[in-house]
Amino acid sequence: MPTPPSDDELQTLSRQIGELARDKHHMLVTAESCTAGWIAKCLTDVAGSSAWFESGVAVYSYEAKQALLGVRPETLEAHGAVSRETVMEMVSGAISRSGGTLAVAVTGIAGPGGGTADKPVGTVWVAWKSRGSYTTAEMFHFEGDRDAVRRQAVSQALRGLHRLLSA
């Protein structure tokens, strides 16, 4: 099992994202389910983040995903909270309902319970979206306890932001 990223690694990545976002005049938005605001915390731990971080929302329940991000009830009913379809609607809602220009959304099963044969513990979907442009989503299968799964999800979300800002 790979070693989850350290706090120092997450801090370094967040600082780099902040510099790129500031230089490219982006405002970042997060929509988080299984990570519960950890991505937003990493980003806002960077001094001066208010210049490039717009907002973040932690949404665990179906009702919160619907009310705060506009995820359709039919999507949740047909595909569940942990799915490509749901994370795509989460990231789209995050950007359309904010002043942000670049968004990341995460939904997954961090454990220790809640997994199924189709979606075992460690299944995480991450999506990224730029206002008026692309949306991309990726599924990951992480190993380890709840903290390890969440830490790896945060890392992948940040890495994706970094890739997009570096392009």
Results as ranks from 00 to 15, higher is better:
residue 70 G to C: 10
residue 100 G to E: 10
residue 98 S to N: 04
residue 53 F to P: 15
residue 10 L to Q: 09
residue 123 T to Y: 01
residue 87 V to D: 05
residue 20 L to V: 02
residue 46 V to I: 13
residue 69 L to C: 13
residue 35 T to H: 14
residue 53 F to H: 09
residue 118 D to N: 10
residue 24 K to D: 03
residue 8 D to V: 09
residue 35 T to M: 15
residue 95 I to K: 09
residue 121 V to P: 00
residue 74 E to C: 08
residue 75 T to W: 00
residue 105 A to V: 03
residue 29 V to S: 07
residue 119 K to M: 02
residue 106 V to L: 02
residue 6 S to M: 03
residue 9 E to A: 10
residue 82 V to S: 14
residue 113 G to W: 11
residue 48 G to Q: 07
residue 75 T to E: 04
residue 54 E to H: 11
residue 89 E to V: 12
residue 87 V to P: 00
residue 26 H to V: 00
residue 25 H to F: 01
residue 83 S to A: 04
residue 119 K to D: 01
residue 15 R to G: 02
residue 10 L to M: 10
residue 112 P to N: 13
residue 102 L to G: 15
residue 63 E to Q: 08
residue 22 R to I: 00
residue 115 G to L: 08
residue 47 A to G: 11
residue 93 G to D: 05
residue 100 G to A: 15
residue 84 R to A: 08
residue 83 S to L: 01
residue 63 E to K: 04
residue 73 P to T: 15
residue 112 P to Y: 10
residue 48 G to M: 11
residue 18 G to W: 00
residue 17 I to F: 00
residue 73 P to L: 06
residue 110 A to Q: 13
residue 93 G to T: 15
residue 25 H to N: 06
residue 114 G to Q: 02
residue 110 A to K: 06
residue 15 R to E: 05
residue 62 Y to H: 13
residue 36 A to Q: 14
residue 39 I to Y: 04
residue 108 G to Q: 11
residue 84 R to N: 04
residue 6 S to F: 01
residue 70 G to K: 11
residue 108 G to S: 11
residue 66 Q to V: 14
residue 107 T to C: 05
residue 80 G to W: 01
residue 94 A to H: 11
residue 60 Y to I: 06
residue 45 D to T: 15
residue 90 M to K: 13
residue 62 Y to A: 09
residue 101 T to Q: 13
residue 85 E to H: 09
residue 49 S to K: 09
residue 9 E to I: 12
residue 101 T to S: 15
residue 122 G to W: 04
residue 27 M to F: 14
residue 86 T to P: 08
residue 66 Q to S: 11
residue 116 T to L: 06
residue 20 L to P: 01
residue 56 G to K: 15
residue 30 T to Y: 10
residue 44 T to E: 01
residue 53 F to V: 09
residue 9 E to D: 03
residue 91 V to A: 02
residue 82 V to Q: 13
residue 28 L to S: 13
residue 17 I to N: 02
residue 20 L to T: 04
residue 57 V to P: 03
residue 13 L to R: 13
residue 69 L to Q: 07
residue 74 E to V: 15
residue 37 G to K: 02
residue 40 A to T: 02
